[in-house]
Design a protein around this nucleic acid. Structure first.
Lengths: 224, 224
DNA sequence: GCGACGTTTCGACCGTGCTCGAACCATCGA
DNA sequence: TCGATGGTTCGAGCACGGTCGAAACGTCGC
């Protein structure tokens, strides 16, 4: 009989379809209300509420009360990373539910992954960084190249600020099955894309829709 | 209703205590038989067999038949990484089951984590590498320093060989709550420790026991 | 060939936990 | 103070899945 952290408890929390759907929805990075999550998971409000209290008790969610709205969000990057890891395994062992990647083609092109960009666009962007040696890649392991600081400074992103999270991390893209850029750098780039209004978040989805001029601008800056 | 990889299916496989125990046992890196896993999980043989076939069907395990013995092992590093991620979350949100880290003090000192060394010794080793700038760390993100190749070559480990897996990865240690060294470099170091007979694997456990001269040799080479 | 051993399959039992309707609370706007 | 809306709690129903004993299966030693 093994000891140590109660991994079955955590895994079983994610192991229910309704809760898994909620957690996937929260991978969008924005906190959601109980009713939104109930809709997302396809269950009634009481059921959703029960699930949410279980996820709270398990420490997987945080709760921010604002008046009569209660916003649930992922408890942090560690939890997001776990969901990502499970998603990766699920994608690689079971391509049975959906042909290849997300059904929605917009999702396949570009979507939010917790706090950074994922999808074909994101994979292409990382590839381009590697080609230009702004980022150095050794398979799954990536790091900033010597020219990274000046390159990103030129477009208004500071990679020298050293927060608690890694600046530059690889994140396996489950639709394309290749890596894209995560970490604070990935988050900063997504912020820029949205701040410049090059793209907007699709309502009730993780999809990120580029406007035609936005797409051009994005490609000029990040894929040139 | 969300689409995409069936994450609930995978998570619920890990979410059963018996199966979680089996998977934890297999994190030791060696393949085990059905009876060993039944013992490990504390269930009867038929029950264990049923669980194993579910894990197989879910793609989490591989099976190697050798005569009348059937050895089950983790399906690969991706699966191991997922278990690690879940263990990390479980350790950080719920220190309720066991005071602090593994009950067995030997486990706390040194143990196997899939294919590399974990525990206090492993954390100390990575710290020392960082101190000597053989490995460069930016929080969770680590990479080889310029002197790494020559340093490890001197002790018979080649870090230039580039296999499919990352050479150098950080892995959060759930007993110490700090990172230790994973990746092929971590695996190579564990191999060396066992090949040199500095330490032996504890039977039926992930614990790694150093002999007194072995400990000295290890400290001389890796902690000096 | 025939026992011995490791492993899987079958069948039946039982409990955990998911589910929803209805009632109950709390917060906001008039 | 009163309705309206967002959210939780309670209770009962129900099904899925974990559990084990007994039996069947396959492989190895003699």
């Amino acid at each position: 009989m093994r000891e140590g952290p109660d991994i079955a408890r955590i895994a079983s929390l994610v192991g229910d379809p309704a809760r898994a759907n909620m957690l996937s929805a929260l991978m969008g990075g924005t906190a959601l209300t109980a009713s939104e999550l109930a809709l997302e998971a396809g269950v009634s409000l009481p059921t959703a509420s029960s699930h949410l209290s279980k996820l709270m008790e398990g420490g997987l969610l945080t709760l921010a009360s604002q008046g009569r709205h209660r916003y649930y969000g992922l408890a942090g990057p560690q939890v997001a990373g776990m969901i990502e890891a499970i998603t990766g395994v699920a994608a690689s062992v079971g391509p049975q539910r959906v042909r290849q990647g997300p059904r929605d083609s917009a999702m396949r092109v570009a979507r939010v992954c917790y706090d950074h960009l994922a999808g074909e666009q994101a994979v292409a962007m990382l590839d381009r960084f590697v080609e230009k040696e702004i980022i150095l890649r050794n398979d799954q392991e990536i790091r900033l190249g010597p020219s990274a600081a000046s390159h990103f400074a030129a477009i208004g992103i500071d990679v020298d600020a050293k927060p608690r999270r890694p600046v530059c991390r690889a994140c396996l893209d489950w639709s394309v099955r290749r890596s894209h850029l995560a970490g604070t750098l990935g988050a900063a780039i997504l912020d820029k894309i949205l701040a410049q209004k090059w793209a907007r978040r699709e309502k009730d989805s993780r999809a990120v829709i580029f406007s035609p001029p936005g797409k051009q601008a994005f490609e000029k800056v990040f894929l040139a």
